[in-house]
Simulated assay, not measured.
Amino acid sequence: MSQALQRVGDSRTVRRTLLAVSAVLAVLVFGAPLALVFARAFALGGSVYLEKIGDPLTLPAVRLTVLAALVVTLINTVFGICAAWLITRHSFRGRGLLTALIELPVSVSPIVAGVAYLFLYGAQGLLGPLLSAQGWRIMFTAPAIFLASLFVTAPYVARELITVMQAQAQDDEEAALTLGASGFRIFLSVTLPNVRWALFYGALLCNARVMGEFGAVSVVSGKIRGRTETLPLHIEVLFNDYNATGAFAASSLLALLALVTLGLKSLAEWRLAAASRD
């Protein structure tokens, strides 16, 4: 007669202990700081909060942050789709190298990426004088923010799609191929619908990271107030100016965006889990 082995965590005491520790850590690490941000943001009332949000220097930071998120997420989504299709559906020399390059930004400090762009496209950089001679300036402009954010967030969409596409069977795609469908038609009609939630999930992660990126952007933006300040940079400036209320008001916007992203992320995870069961 086989004897059932007790798994770790089957004990009621162990489960309750783990639950209590997780709840305490969640409150201390996530809940308390988030509650503090909103409490300090509204400490002087809703009218003061709206005044701080509508500050002439805060609104441009919000607009630039949203613009950077839209541009970078769109580009990285297209890049992620192309890279995932190439890596999972084709065999070629250098596929491992391409995969490693996609993973590279995860292991590189964002500040290192910003410095690299500065020494490449800056006025005294490798390509800076050539660009200046053509009347082009990249560093300390919005395009510099886009470039740095592109590097930092490049893996997010691609990694999600590669994982899902490698795990999925290719029977539907092969059936469509035997019926004479082109590669582009197969991708639009078969592959893309099967990975749409993974694509959505990766785009959400990319969008959230762009809006919260500080290190690389702080190097290449020049922190020009009203022009090249994203919301995280603007929050730092407000704190340095001892404008705590304005800093917490701006921080609450990022927190709200994070909460919305978390809700959408949970939806995408649920749909991904449901799709994998099907």
Rank of each mutant, 00 (worst) to 15 (best):
M1C: 13
S2D: 12
A4M: 06
R7T: 13
V8Y: 11
A23P: 03
V27G: 05
V27N: 01
V27K: 01
Y49H: 09
Y49P: 13
A69C: 11
V71E: 08
S91V: 13
R93S: 12
G94N: 10
L97V: 14
I102W: 02
I102A: 02
P105M: 06
P105E: 04
P105K: 06
P105G: 10
S107C: 05
V108W: 02
V108K: 03
A113F: 00
G114W: 01
Y117Q: 04
G122M: 03
G125T: 11
L126I: 15
L126R: 10
P129C: 03
Q134C: 12
R137Q: 12
F146H: 04
L150V: 09
F151M: 10
T153H: 04
V157N: 06
I162A: 03
M165A: 08
Q166F: 04
Q168L: 14
A169K: 05
D171H: 12
D172A: 15
E174D: 14
G180S: 07
G180D: 09
S182T: 14
R185W: 03
R185Q: 09
I186T: 13
L192F: 11
P193L: 07
P193I: 07
W197C: 01
F200D: 09
L204R: 04
C206M: 00
N207M: 14
A208F: 02
V210F: 05
V217D: 04
V220N: 00
G222E: 01
I235H: 04
N240K: 06
N243A: 09
A249L: 00
L256N: 01
L259C: 10
L259A: 14
R277I: 14
